Simulated scan of single mutants.
Amino acid sequence: MDLTKFQKQIEGSSDKARPLPPVENWNPDFCGDINMVIAMDGRWFYEGTPVGRASLVKLFSSVLKKEEDNYFLVTPVEKVGITVEDTPFLITQWKVLEEKDNSKTLVLVTQTGDEVRLNNEEQIELRVPPEEIRDKDATAIPYVCVRRNLWARLHQNVYYQLLEKAEEKSNGDTTRFLIHSANRNFVIGEVNQSK
């Protein structure tokens, strides 16, 4: 696979009025798998070498598509399979925006610069991470939907920062850690007290 050719296909097909290409509308023939990996830590590798240009990673992430459990890079004329070790995105930063109605919205930022405004309960779910990074108790951590069916895991530093700001609520056996965003509560952690 020629990454330069693939890059030109992506750049030539993007609608300038729209920040992301409409990959959900593209269904080209499958051209095979390439040796590209999105590692557990959010870094992209091609042929075992890190993709060093942030602009190239951002471009490739804009044409990422997930079908069932498989990930692909897609242009209008080409579709290639890649490997994703956990999730394609990692939340590496966060900020709080004050809205016009004086409410506050938590914005989560990925390693590729995608911003997710947390305003719907379906955007976040607790999952047990892969064995390589889970704690000994296999505690579930928050995963966030970035777009379509592409998810991000919170970087450990971001997760701990948000836990410090979280409100604790207990209902007997379970303590939940809640963050408030867009006038809603989001569960970012749970501890079962009966253990």
Results as ranks from 00 to 15, higher is better:
T92A: 03
V116L: 04
H155S: 15
I82E: 07
T92I: 12
A140Y: 08
L97R: 13
E125V: 12
V74K: 08
D135R: 12
L118S: 03
N70S: 13
T83H: 12
T83L: 12
R147C: 08
E122F: 12
R134V: 09
L126K: 07
V116W: 05
K104F: 11
D101S: 11
A140G: 08
S103C: 05
T75D: 05
E85D: 11
I82Q: 09
P129H: 06
C145F: 04
N70Q: 14
E125W: 06
P142E: 07
V109I: 15
N149V: 04
L108I: 11
T112M: 11
T83K: 14
T83M: 12
L73F: 13
R117K: 11
T92Y: 01
L64D: 01
L73N: 02
V63R: 00
E122D: 12
D69G: 01
K65S: 07
V63H: 05
T92L: 01
I91Q: 07
N120Q: 13
A140W: 03
L106S: 03
E78D: 12
P129G: 06
K95L: 11
I91P: 09
L106G: 02
H155D: 15
D69Y: 10
V116H: 06
Q156F: 12
V63S: 05
K65A: 00
E85N: 08
R148D: 14
L97S: 02
H155F: 06
T110W: 11
V77L: 07
G81H: 03
L73P: 04
E98F: 05
E131M: 13
K100V: 14
V146A: 02
